[in-house]
Design a protein around this nucleic acid. Structure first.
Lengths: 199, 199, 199, 199
DNA sequence: AATGAATGAGCTTTCATTCAT
DNA sequence: CATGAATGAAAGCTCATTCAT
């Protein structure tokens, strides 16, 4: 169930192939599988094949590793989300793209990292929370802009902020149950979520 | 933001008023606010006003405290959910009651405990997970029974299991943002979720 | 291998049948089987069927229990040894009786208690060691008196003190290996030790 | 009486001069003087001049330290015993060498470690007991081989196993009373024990 | 950059002892 | 005398971090 070395896990696309990137990749995987607190730096060192002491040549602290995982994750997925929004001018089409993009982020190639972003928020030091939060707000704004257009069109009849929260919950929860090889494809799932969102 | 003694927090209704119950109440609150790993037994002792060593008079281990919080939470809310289901014979009405009941569980009088049940699952020892999981399955079955009736009526057009997962995500996510004193009441929120669920 | 309640163990004759005596009996057995440090007062309470707190109505401290076990053991076995010495006037016969008596003490009806006396000496508080030591010296003096008579007779050609130490070691070690139901009787063993001691 | 730092104690020859060896040396001394249970890892750390946490860099647990002390002790003294046996072809001469060798082990340069091997047996975890026991049996076999040859020659008239037990008790007990600077030399003591063993 | 031994604060848990009932 | 909840000190052990090599 849980891999014992970094070779055995699928690549998480938001990290590059440098030693530093591999480290973040291993960290994201372990933080996702075991939680930040339960992952020791020794374990992380073993997982990626260096001594635990050497981690601190790349990062100032364990907290710093977590912050960087989150930062790169949000930067990468913010770009993906923006690109999705720009793929159409019609709000409903835009929404479809956003849903698909976020589902890919969460259940696909950056799933572990996204889960860390969501679940380990409280593990991040206060100062770094502020920094990451600003990016999260930009990310959310992409959603809100589209939903507000749908409100104007009358296709969404509720407060955009709350509506996004409900959808965001439904989408992010998929991390706990969605299996790519399961009975439903990501496109089908996208349609289901869309149906929830607009009549 | 975070209370420093048990007197300052609202009562969580699934725990009684015995010393043991107060302990569970304090544990649920602290596990919710800080996470299980970051809550030390010393902190917990201080919070409820006893020595940390005395905790082990009531529970064999920290893990045992977590398991009991989860057990009592699920027992209490399972009863609430069942009662909600029985309040009507019409599936759509039933669904409305289930949504309201779960929203109350999560944002209301057992919110902290429910959040622990969801978030600290991985912190529970393997053996105890199995025990709690059985109860969770019974809980979920109440939902599935109602949704399947709605499928038969054509009011839900999708796989009941997946549909429930999406709704469950939306509902449980409210723990992160819903404020009772905010701009929307629990009844309004219930209607919004219901609208998502059925046309 | 290890009994879980006092009913299952053979009576140790140096303790009487009062509640206090039963307590000492249980303590001797547990200290013997597990060691003084590894025996908790809770265990001891459970073993004899009372609450651990109640032990302290009978004894001031755990150390006090150990001291009393030792005291009663040495008093009882000192009496037995003296009686053995007085059973004959011939030194060689006397020695035979002493050997037999000590073997009975160690492998027989007070074995557990004697083992405690020997092995847990260092666990006894300094002040109580002094008190018990005086009795041990009296006990040893019975041996030395007999051996010195054998020296005079030329049947022992070595320093009485050292000779006794060697014999004492051989005898007390039997606690680790002698089984009453084994291939050798206590009388045969007595003769073997006697043969070691005198030509 | 009891040293407070490792510089003040005589070297125990079965441990080398590495940090790890010094640690074992300190452990052997403290376990000998105070007992395993009464020696805390903090005390041990102080004694050898490192933090208690650092002990666990070298050994997985306190139990592991005990096991290693025992293992190295028995390996070293097994070699010494074997060499002693090979120093002559005559069984009686061999026995003399064995006695001397074991007396040296117990009262000389490995005394503390041998005492630990004998006294703290019950403190060792069950699995490790099995491992050490195998070595002890090989050690005992050297004795039994020689005694059996003496049985054949008629110089010992008793069961070899029991005879060894009696002698072993006499010898190992010397740890409690023999002082090198006392009135008797190790060679004289060897002759006394030999006289007990064979006519 | 990497190593790996060392640090030291902090963790969960144990346990002899106390004391109100 | 007995109970059993509570105490509080101390136990074994963990772990992020440092630093000389």
């Amino acid at each position: 169930m849980i891999a014992t070395s970094i070779e055995q896990i699928p690549k998480i696309v938001c990290f590059d192939d440098s030693p530093r990137g591999r480290l973040l990749q291993g960290a994201a995987y372990l933080f996702y599988k075991q939680g930040y607190d339960k992952t020791t730096v020794r374990q992380l060192g073993e997982f990626i094949g260096i001594q635990s002491g050497s981690l601190f040549h790349h990062f100032k602290s364990k907290d710093d590793i977590l912050a960087t995982v989150m930062e790169q994750t949000i930067i990468y997925n913010f770009a993906r989300l923006k690109e999705a929004a720009e793929r159409s001018a019609d709000p409903e089409q835009q929404l479809r793209h956003l849903i698909k993009a976020e589902l890919v982020s969460i259940t696909g190639d950056t799933g572990a990292a996204m889960a860390v972003l969501v679940h380990e928020w409280a593990s991040l030091s206060k100062e770094k929370q502020a920094y990451i939060l600003k990016m999260r707000n930009e990310y959310e704004q992409v959603w809100l802009d589209v939903i507000e257009k749908l409100c104007v069109q009358g296709k969404v009849k509720h407060d955009a902020f709350i509506w996004r929260r409900l959808m965001g919950g439904a989408i992010s929860w998929t991390v706990t149950w969605y299996k790519p090889e399961g009975k439903i494809s990501l496109d089908e799932l996208t349609e289901m979520v869309l149906e929830m969102a607009v009549k």
